[in-house]
Computed example of a mutant assay.
Amino acid sequence: MKFGVVVFPGSNCDRDVVTVTSGLLHCPTRRVWHQETDIHDLDVIVIPGGFSYGDYLRCGAIARFSPIMKSVIEHAKLGKYVLGICNGFQILTEVGLLPGALTRNENLHFICDQIPLRVEHTNSPWTQNYTCEQIITIPIAHGEGRYYADAETLQTLEDNGQVLFRYCSPTGDITPASNPNGSLNNIAGIVNHQGNVLGMMPHPERASDPLIKATDGLKLFEGILTGNPLLSLV
Rank of each mutant, 00 (worst) to 15 (best):
E152T: 15
I115L: 08
I115P: 04
A214Y: 09
V72R: 10
L211S: 12
D16E: 14
I138P: 01
N186Q: 07
L220I: 07
N12L: 08
S208Y: 11
N12Q: 13
N192E: 11
I174L: 12
F3H: 02
C59I: 06
Y147W: 02
F3C: 07
S52I: 09
W33V: 05
R64Q: 10
P67V: 11
L231Q: 12
W33R: 04
I68M: 01
G195L: 04
V197K: 10
D173F: 13
D55M: 10
R118Y: 06
A177N: 12
R31Q: 15
A188I: 09
I73Y: 03
G189D: 03
E144Q: 07
S52C: 05
C86R: 03
S71G: 14
V82S: 13
V7N: 11
V119I: 08
R30K: 14
N196Q: 05
V32F: 03
T93R: 15
G10E: 09
A149Y: 07
Y130D: 14
L218R: 12
D209K: 13
G161C: 08
L220D: 14
M201D: 08
G100P: 14
C112F: 03
P9S: 04
G49W: 00
A207S: 10
T171A: 13
R64S: 05
N186A: 04
L211Q: 09
G145R: 10
S22C: 01
L98K: 08
F110A: 14
E74A: 14
V32Q: 07
A63I: 11
S124D: 03
T21G: 04
A61G: 03
I73D: 01
P125E: 15
A188K: 12
A63H: 11
H40Y: 09
A177C: 09
E133P: 00
P9G: 06
G60E: 07
P229A: 08
Q90F: 04
G227A: 05
E74W: 03
T29L: 15
K70H: 11
A177Q: 04
Y81A: 03
E205D: 02
G4W: 06
T137K: 05
S11W: 05
C168V: 09
L97G: 04
V72G: 14
Y53A: 08
L220S: 13
G189M: 11
K2H: 06
E74T: 14
S183Q: 01
A61C: 08
M69P: 08
